[in-house]
Simulated scan of single mutants.
Amino acid sequence: MTVYGWMRMAWTDEKLKWNKTEWGGLHELHLADHEIWQPDIILYNSASGSSIDHYGNSHCVVFPTGEVFWVPPAQFLVFCDLDLRLWPYDTQTCHLTLGSWTYDGDQVDLQLGVPFDGFEMDLWNTNSEWQIVDVKGNRAEQYYSCCTEPYIDITYNITLRRQSPAYSAIVITPAAAIVLMTLAGFWLPPNAGEKILLNGCTAIIICLFLLYFSQKLPAMAGNTPLVVLFYSSSLHLVILSLVVTVVVLNLSRNCYSIPVPWVLQSLLLGWPGRMLGLHHIVLLVPSAEDRHESCSGMEDSSIEASSSGGNVSIGDDSRRVLTRTSSHRRHQVNWILLAIAIDRLCFLLYCLLFIILATVYSV
């Protein structure tokens, strides 16, 4: 964090006292910063390397009482311990620790200025991304094993909150769209190839967002943003959804000569099937079969009647073919019902999983 501001320091120098009446009513002096003694107040946790010149070259104001007033422009560059777990709704606290570099507390006794925390926000320029929530000053005395005298430092704790309306539109809204796209795939017809296309597009979108996060956020151990974890978990769920889609397409498109196991068939035609909304599909299937069989029977009868000179009769081989075709069609319908049931079960399961993810990663 880089802080630009004015540093206000005041101290008393016994060597700079004078009597105003003896000097023509002189009530103040303006002296260059290199002409008088100044405290060597340094930023302890500076991130600017070997450069420790924090203050600009500005004059000091000296009063007859020996009080020296110095307000130089200052620039502080410090390391901040970032916690990006709640990004982009995070709040960060950075510390500025100031103290004398060569003088102990018996020689230079640092005190907080007025107001009590020594930090004024009158000339604060608003930032487009960060908002200052709180600033607190704290004076501390440190004792080291090498020395008996105290060493005094003053620490300013600056609490910042990220302003995130833009991030909400860029990150949060697409997350809701990804959830809806993933759930919508389960409501497409079980034999629709568009299910794979929809899941593939969703996976690509999530990968693009993860690449955006890798460029936007620093890699920090133990502080992975929750929104990144949500996108990562969503990618796992989409890949599993893609696997389920392949299974469903297999069940609905392939022609099976074997029936659905009786346990699954009883569940599909019983109350579990009604709970999944399969009852109206089950009711429509026999009527369609009957119509198809009757139409096929009428066609075969008319053909046989015309060839036999008007005597209408259906041979045993024809009945066998019709029965076998009807049986295969019934098996295939049951497999399609199983595919629809898998889709709807996965829809309910994914709704529950996304609710759990949103609850866990929004804390």
Rank of each mutant, 00 (worst) to 15 (best):
Y55S: 02
R344H: 15
E14V: 03
T102F: 15
L267I: 07
T159R: 08
L284H: 08
P73S: 01
V114N: 10
S308Q: 09
C60F: 01
V62H: 07
L31V: 15
D13I: 05
Y350A: 13
S257Q: 12
H328E: 14
M298E: 13
R139L: 12
G185H: 02
F76V: 05
A47I: 06
F230Y: 14
F354P: 03
D40V: 00
T159C: 06
Q163T: 10
P189G: 00
Y167C: 02
V227K: 10
H95C: 01
A192P: 04
K20F: 12
M121E: 09
H236R: 14
Y212M: 04
I36E: 06
H27N: 15
T12V: 15
T202L: 02
L357E: 14
G270L: 01
M9I: 15
R253L: 12
L235H: 05
L98Q: 08
T323D: 08
P174S: 05
S164A: 15
I196W: 02
T91S: 08
T325Y: 00
T325G: 00
D316K: 13
L217C: 02
G277I: 10
L198T: 14
V133W: 02
I154R: 08
A184H: 07
F119N: 00
M9G: 07
S164E: 10
R162V: 04
I258A: 13
C207Y: 00
I36Q: 05
E129G: 03
L84E: 11
T224H: 00
N127Q: 10
H54K: 03
Q332H: 12
V312H: 04
Y231V: 04
Y212P: 03
G309V: 06
P72I: 05
F230A: 05
G200P: 00
N311L: 13
L278W: 10
L77I: 12
A305F: 00
F354Y: 08
Q111G: 02
L337W: 09
D122H: 14
S287N: 06
T323C: 03
L337T: 04
S252L: 03
L249P: 06
T102Y: 14
P72R: 06
T97Q: 14
S266R: 13
C94Q: 13
A305W: 07
V363F: 14
L348K: 13
R330F: 03
D316G: 05
Y55T: 01
P64I: 03
H279N: 09
H280M: 05
E149M: 09
I303R: 08
F76S: 01
M298N: 15
S168D: 14
Q163F: 12
I258W: 14
D316A: 12
C351T: 07
Q265I: 03
L31S: 03
F230K: 06
L283H: 04
P218T: 03
F63C: 00
D316M: 13
L251C: 01
A341V: 07
K136I: 10
P272T: 10
G99R: 08
I152L: 07
S266F: 06
I52G: 01
G49F: 11
N199S: 07
W271A: 02
L345D: 00
S214T: 12
Y156R: 02
V247K: 02
S362D: 12
A339K: 00
L353H: 11
E194N: 09
Q107A: 03
F63Q: 08
